[in-house]
Amino acid sequence: MRRRFFRARLMLTLSTLLGLSLGAAPATQAAPANEGTALPIAYHCDLAVDPLHKQVFISDYTTGSVLVADYQGRLVRTIENLPGVCDLELSADSRTLYAPLVLGDAISVIDTGTAKERARYATGAGTAPRHAALIGRTLFFGYGEQWEASIGSLALGASAPQVRLGLIPEGAFSGAPLLVSSPAAPGTLVAGDENTSPTQLSVYDVSAGSPVLRTTVNDPGGASNLSDLAITPDGKTLLTASGAPYHHPSFRLPALTEGHTYPSTSYPDAVAVSSRGDVAAGVQSIEPDPDVYLYRAGADSPYRTVSLAPATGSDAGYLRPHGLAWTPDGTRLFAISGHNDEENLRLVVIPAANEATVGQ
C-alpha cells in the first residue's frame, strides 16, 4: 500500500499572465505553454470556477488562504485565515463557496461576491474535514485520518445549520474520502479512496439524508493512487484520474461498470468535464508528452493537446493533481501547473466551434 502526503511548496511572487498555447498536432507534438500567472501559494489543493462573478478560486492548504483570479487569470484578491483549506465547493447559484478546513476542524462559508467569510461551522476537534460535495441543501464532507475516516454532513437548509458525523463506518476508507456529486444525479454521492493502491470507489444513495451504500468496487479498472473524480453533465458517468493505469477511464453510475476510455499517458492526475460534455484529461507527464488531452464526449482521440512546460527545457512543467476546472459553458479551461517549485495558473480559451486559441 502506498500513501500520498502533502508536499509544501515555496512562496512565490505574482508575475504577468502570458497566456497558453494549444497544440493541434498529434499528442506527442503538443505545443509548449507560456509561463502563465505565478501563484503566491505553497500547496495548491483545489480550484473552483464562479460563472456569476467570472472568477476562479484557488485554495492553498499550507498558507491557509484562497486566491481569487478573474477570467483572464489575473489575481485580484486573497482570502486569508482558512487553516488547511482544501476542497472548494460552489453553491448552485454561485453565490456561496464552501471550504473544509483540515487544520481548523470546520467548514468555512464564503460570500463569492465580497470574498469574505460569512460563517464558520465547527465539525469537532480532530475531525480534519478535507473533501466536500454539495447535494441539494446538504454539504457532505470527507474527514478523518489513518483508517478512522468517515463522511459527515452539514445541513444548510435549517435555521441553525447542523453537523452530523459518522455517516459511514470508520475504516471504509483509509483517509478522508474524495467526494463528487452532480445536480443531474440527485441523491447520488460518489466516494473514492485516494490514499491506497489499488483504490476503491463507492456509490451512496443520500436521498434520505444518510448515505446508503449501493455499490463498491475495489481496484476499478486497475486504478491506483486516485487523484480526481468528475461526473458527466447527464449524471450517468463517472470519470477518474489515477496514477495508473495510463489512461482516463469512465464508469457507468450507479453500478460502476466500465465504460469508454479516454487515452492519455503517464501519470493521470486530473480530470474535468464541461457542461457541453468536453473532457479534459490531465496527466503529470514526462516531456515531450502533453499534459492535457481535450476530448469531445465519447471520442477516441483528442481534438487538442496542451503542454504546460516552459518554452525552454524539458521535464520542466507538470499538471498539479486535481488541477483542472472548466467554466460551465466549456469555453475556458483553467489549469494549475508546477515548475521548479513554482505553481502557475494557466488559461485555455476554447470557442464554441472547439477551435482553441491563445489565452486572453
Rank of each mutant, 00 (worst) to 15 (best):
L10W: 09
L10C: 07
M11I: 06
L14Q: 14
L14G: 07
L14E: 15
S15K: 09
L17M: 13
L18Q: 15
L18H: 14
L18A: 12
G19F: 02
G19D: 01
S21G: 10
G23S: 15
G23E: 05
P26E: 11
A33E: 03
N34C: 00
N34D: 12
T37Y: 05
L39P: 03
I41Y: 08
Y43P: 00
Y43E: 10
H44G: 11
C45G: 11
L47M: 14
D50G: 01
D50P: 03
L52Y: 02
H53I: 00
K54M: 07
K54L: 09
K54N: 12
F57T: 03
F57H: 09
I58M: 07
I58Y: 02
S59C: 04
S59Q: 03
D60C: 03
T62I: 12
T62W: 08
T63S: 12
T63H: 12
T63I: 00
G64F: 02
G64V: 00
S65L: 12
L67V: 06
V68I: 13
Y71L: 10
Y71G: 12
G73K: 02
L75P: 05
L75C: 07
V76D: 08
V76E: 12
T78H: 11
L82I: 07
P83D: 08
V85D: 05
V85K: 06
L88K: 01
E89F: 00
S91Y: 00
A92Y: 14
D93P: 03
D93K: 02
S94N: 12
Y98W: 08
Y98L: 13
Y98D: 01
A99D: 01
P100S: 05
P100E: 01
L101H: 05
V102W: 05
L103E: 10
D105I: 00
I107E: 02
S108R: 00
V109H: 09
V109M: 11
V109G: 07
G113C: 09
K116R: 15
E117A: 14
A119C: 12
R120W: 11
R120S: 13
A122R: 14
T123K: 05
T123W: 04
T123M: 08
G124A: 08
G124F: 06
A128L: 11
P129K: 03
P129Y: 04
H131M: 03
H131V: 00
A133H: 05
A133Q: 08
A133E: 06
L134W: 08
L134E: 09
L134S: 10
G136L: 02
G136W: 03
R137P: 04
R137C: 09
T138Q: 10
T138C: 09
